[in-house]
Design a protein around this nucleic acid. Structure first.
Lengths: 207, 207
DNA sequence: GTCTATAGTCGGATAGAC
DNA sequence: GTCTATCCGACTATAGAC
C-alpha cells in the first residue's frame, strides 16, 4: 500500500477530475485519499503546493506510460490514432482532465501557472519528438516550425478534451474532421517535390 | 447607466476572468458590479444560474461584435489574422477567458455544461460560415468535414487561450507555427486539381 | 428592487495530544 | 506521522425592513 504522501498526490488528481478546480479542497482531497485533512498541510504546506506537486507527479507518470507508444509512431496517421486512444484512455483515467483543471486555475493563480507549464511541457516534448520523426521527409517540416506545432497540438488537445466534457457529440465531429486533414497531409508527402516548389514560389511572392 | 441585472451579467464575466471559476462567488461578482450580494439571488436565483445567463449574454454580445469581421474574411490567411486579433482583443476584454473558465467548470457541473455548449456554438457557427466561404474552391473542402473542422478550430482556440494564460511565450510559438500551415494550405489551393487527384488516389488506396 | 442581518456550511490553516 | 479540536474567514441562501 502506498504511503500517505503518494496517496494524497494521487487523490488530488482524482479529485480535480471529479469535482473540478472549484471543488478541490484539502478536505475533498483527503476524503478521496482516505486520510486526515490536516495531513495535506503537514506533507505539502498548503493545498496549492499539493496541487503543484500532483501536477508534476501525474504528468511524469502518465507521460512515461505513453513514451513507448509515442516512440513507435511512424506516420501522422498513427500519431492521430495515438492521440485518439490517449484521449479515450486518459478521459477514463482522468489525468489529462486534471491538467486541464489546473490550467484553468493557473490563469488566475500565479502559484499554479508554472506547475501547469511544466506538466504541459512534458507532453509537448513527446509530441515534438514524434512530429520531428514523422515529418522528417514531409514538406510540412520545411514550412512549419515543428516545435511550435507541437505546442499548438498539445494546447489544441487540451481544448478538445474540455470540449468533450461539455459536448461529446460535437467533440467527436471535431476529431473526425482531423482525419481528413492528416489524409491530405499524407497526399502532400507523396507529391513532395512538387508541393515544395509551389509553396516556395508562393512564399517568395507573399513575403 | 445599466440596470442591476445587466451589471451583474457583465460583472460575472469580468470576475471569471479575474479570479477564475474557483474564485467566482456571489460576493466577488456583486463587489465587481458594485451592488449588494443578495441581488444575485433576487435576480437569478443562484450563482450557477447567473453564470449560465452570463455565458449566453457574453457570447451573444461578443460574437455580434465580430460578425462583420468574420464576414469580411476572404482567405485562410485572413481568418488566421482575425483569430490572432480576436485572441489579443478578447484577452484584454476577457470574455473568451470567461468562456474557458465556464468550460472548465462545466466538466463537473451539469448545470454549467449546456450553457457553455451554447456559448461555444455561437463562435463555432461564425467560424463555420467563414470556413465554408474561404475553402469553397480549396481541395480542403473536398476531404475535410468543414463543420467538424470549425468545431475543432474553436476548441483548439480555447486551448491556446488557456495555454497563453500560463506560458505566453510558448503560446506565441504555437500561434506562429500556424502561419506556416496556412501558407502551405494556400499553396495547395493553387495546385488544386493536382492535389485533388493525388489525394483521391491516396484515399482509394487507404480506405 | 435594494438593503441589513443572519443562519448554516465549508474551507484553510494551526495547536497540541498521542 | 497521524489524529482531534478549533479558529476564523468566506461562502450560499433566506428573512424581513425599507
Amino acid at each position: 500500500m502506498a504511503d500517505t504522501r503518494t496517496k494524497l498526490l494521487e487523490a488530488a488528481l482524482v479529485t480535480l477530475g471529479k469535482h473540478g478546480i472549484a471543488g478541490t479542497s484539502a478536505r475533498t482531497i483527503a476524503a478521496e485519499a482516505g486520510v486526515n485533512q490536516a495531513l495535506v498541510f503537514y506533507h505539502f504546506g498548503s493545498v496549492d503546493q499539493l496541487l503543484v506537486a500532483a501536477c508534476e507527479h501525474g504528468s511524469r507518470q502518465r507521460v512515461a506510460l505513453y513514451r513507448a507508444r509515442f516512440a513507435s509512431v511512424t506516420s501522422l496517421r498513427e500519431l492521430l490514432d495515438l492521440g485518439r486512444s490517449l484521449h479515450a484512455e486518459e478521459r477514463a483515467e482522468g489525468s489529462v482532465a486534471a491538467l486541464a483543471q489546473l490550467l484553468a486555475g493557473g490563469q488566475t493563480d500565479p502559484k499554479l501557472a508554472p506547475a501547469t507549464t511544466v506538466g504541459l511541457n512534458l507532453w509537448i516534448e513527446e509530441v515534438r519528438q514524434a512530429l520531428e520523426r514523422v515529418l522528417a521527409t514531409s514538406p510540412l517540416a520545411e514550412f512549419v516550425d515543428v516545435p511550435g506545432l507541437a505546442r499548438a497540438t498539445a494546447a489544441a488537445f487540451v481544448g478538445l478534451e474540455l470540449y468533450e466534457g461539455v459536448d461529446p457529440e460535437g467533440a467527436g465531429q471535431a476529431f473526425d474532421a482531423l482525419e481528413g486533414l492528416v489524409a491530405l497531409a499524407g497526399a502532400l508527402d507523396e507529391m513532395g517535390p512538387l508541393v515544395r516548389r509551389a509553396a516556395r514560389a508562393r512564399l517568395r511572392r507573399h513575403s
